[in-house]
Amino acid sequence: MSDRLKTLVFAVVMCIVCSILLTTASRGLQRFQEKNILMDMRRNILKSVNLVKEGVPYSYGEIEKLFTDNIQPIWVDPSGRQVEENRRSEQDFRLYLYTQNGSATAYIVPINSRGLWGKIHGYLAIESDGSTVSGFTVYKHSETPGLGGEIEKQWFQNNWVGKKIVDQAGQFVSIGIAKGAVTDKIPPAKQMNYVDGISGATLTGKYLSAGIRQILQQYEPVSISFRSRPKADSTSRSKAANPD
């Protein structure tokens, strides 16, 4: 066999062996990877309504159970009405309801915003009064570690709890990320609509604010329907949801 032929045969055999190995590994592990992604998503949804704590390990069984017991994924149309899974159309969007004793105590909006470097994915949970944030989580982003990457940290996400997406008159204003501490930069009347910014990550904050605003605008019909529910009812329920 000539050298050239030998080289060619070696290259071909090598390619085949490598591709078989890779395909086997990728196919064999795909099931686990998909499960991981699903569970990570669910854990973040649960985290946004404070059903799981940061830093505590949960087994997949526990997450599965918490999710099916408390969270109800639904579709809503642009006017805020719930649509059946099999009858939904293209422009309908996802909403997760946090239900306790058969009634919704919060609703969770998937966030898919632009960041500085890439998409920011997360969840924003709003209490059943249709205006108070009960939690915010980020599960995927590509911001710079230490700067914009702080959005995934607990201190940043904790700031969101209790903020309002409406102003004092009850009009929708969304939530903004301040350039620095809210208490320094924002007049007192508007402080409830802003969270502390991350130093050195002005742009991440700017894009995330804009993204959240756009998404909440889209979900505003849902929020309005929650806001127009009987008041006493909703406060008692949201208290039940947050005993602390």
């Binding site: 700067l147 050195g200 990550a201 002005t202 742009l203 700017k206």
Partner: peptide
């Protein structure tokens, strides 16, 4: 280089 982070 990180000082450029403030630029917007």
């Amino acid at each position: 280089f990180m000082l450029f982070a403030g630029i917007s």
